[in-house]
Simulated scan of single mutants.
Amino acid sequence: MADHRVLLISAPIGAGHIRAAQSVSQMLKVNHSCHTELCNIFDLFHPAIGQTILKAYLKILNIFPQAYGTMYGWGNQSRLALIGREWVSQVLAGRMLDYINKFQPSVIVCTHATPAGLVAWLKKKGLIRVPAAAIITDFVVHRLWVYPEFEHYFVAHPAMAEYLSQNGILPQSIVVTGIPVSDSFIQPIDKYQVLGKLNLRPDRKTILIMGGGAGVLPMDEILKLCAQIDRPLQIVAVAGKNQSLYRRLIQLGSVIRHPVRVFSYVDNVHELMSIADLLISKPGGMSTSEALSMGVPLVIYRPIPGQEEANTCYLLNNGAALRADSLSELQNILVRLFEDNSDFTTLRQRAALLGRPHAATDIADFIAKNYFKA
Results as ranks from 00 to 15, higher is better:
P188D: 13
S264A: 15
L225M: 08
K224L: 12
P218E: 12
G196E: 11
L208A: 10
Q193A: 15
M210V: 11
D183Q: 13
P232V: 13
S244V: 09
D220P: 01
L217C: 07
C226F: 08
P202T: 01
S254T: 03
Q166V: 02
Q172I: 03
N199W: 05
Y265P: 00
P180H: 03
P171V: 09
I235E: 09
S254N: 14
Y246L: 01
R247A: 14
I207T: 04
G168E: 06
G240D: 00
P188L: 11
P259V: 04
V194E: 08
Q251K: 15
V262P: 03
V238F: 05
Q234T: 12
D183P: 00
D220I: 07
R201P: 02
I174W: 10
G213L: 05
Y246C: 07
A237L: 01
L249I: 07
T206P: 02
E221K: 08
S182F: 10
A227C: 09
V262D: 03
S184T: 09
K241T: 15
N242C: 04
R261C: 03
P232M: 08
I169H: 10
Y246Q: 10
M219E: 10
I229Y: 11
H258F: 03
V175W: 05
S244L: 04
G213S: 14
F185P: 02
S184Q: 14
Q166W: 02
I207G: 00
K205I: 12
F185W: 04
L200A: 07
E221L: 03
A227V: 08
E221R: 10
I222F: 08
E221T: 06
Q234W: 10
E221N: 04
G212E: 06
K191T: 14
N199S: 13
Y192D: 15
F263S: 01
L249W: 09
D190T: 11
P171E: 11
Q243T: 13
I235K: 00
